[in-house]
């Protein structure tokens, strides 16, 4: 069980949206995590420095917050092997889809991009189907 946190989740969501608007206002870029990770894999790319800076900030902020005493709820209900399997599939999927929840789900839909709307509808549906099958079997 996890606790329903409407206010914290809404506030966190607003911050995610704000980050996307700031990156567009200053750098003219989409705040998509799939593209950011490309910065690590292509260090020679002209966009690599600011992409790596975004990644560093995204990791550093919650890290510093925990040092200052903040607590973020976390639980991974799967085994390490399952987590790794999911990781590989996510990596392949977002590369072919050219984006994930942040790039397509937030930035793309906010621009009403038809590609992002299709992508988001597709991955929300397969995530739901996957969780339902794993937890409740094919009988639903």
């Amino acid at each position: 069980m996890t606790t329903f946190t409407p206010y914290a989740s809404l506030f966190g969501g607003v911050l995610i949206g704000l980050a996307a608007v700031i990156l567009m206002a200053f750098n003219g870029r989409i705040a998509g995590m799939t593209a950011m990770l490309g910065g690590l894999l292509e260090p020679q790319h002209p966009d690599a420095p600011w992409r790596i800076a975004f990644l560093a900030g995204a990791i550093a902020a919650p890290f510093v917050a925990t040092l200052l005493g903040a607590e973020f709820s976390f639980a991974s209900p799967t085994t390490g092997a399952v987590l790794a399997l999911g990781g590989v599939i996510v990596g392949v999927g977002v590369t072919y889809a050219s984006g994930c929840t942040s790039g397509h789900g937030v930035c793309g839909i906010a621009r009403l991009s038809p590609r992002s709307i299709v992508a988001t509808a597709t991955f929300m549906a397969t995530t739901f189907a996957t969780v339902t099958i794993i937890r409740h079997g094919f009988g639903g």
């Binding site: 995590m33 991974s76 209900p77 799967t78 399952v82 987590l83 399997l85 999911g86 990781g87 590989v88 599939i89 996510v90 990596g91 392949v92 999927g93 977002v94 590369t95 072919y96 889809a97 050219s98 994930c100 929840t101 942040s102 397509h104 299709v118 992508a119 988001t120 597709t122 991955f123 929300m124 549906a125 397969t126 995530t127 739901f128 189907a129 996957t130 969780v131 794993i134």
Partner: peptide
Amino acid sequence: GSALFGIGWGIAGFC
């Protein structure tokens, strides 16, 4: 790609 991503997200819980 999106369909595959969702399967992985549903397995691991991480995007």
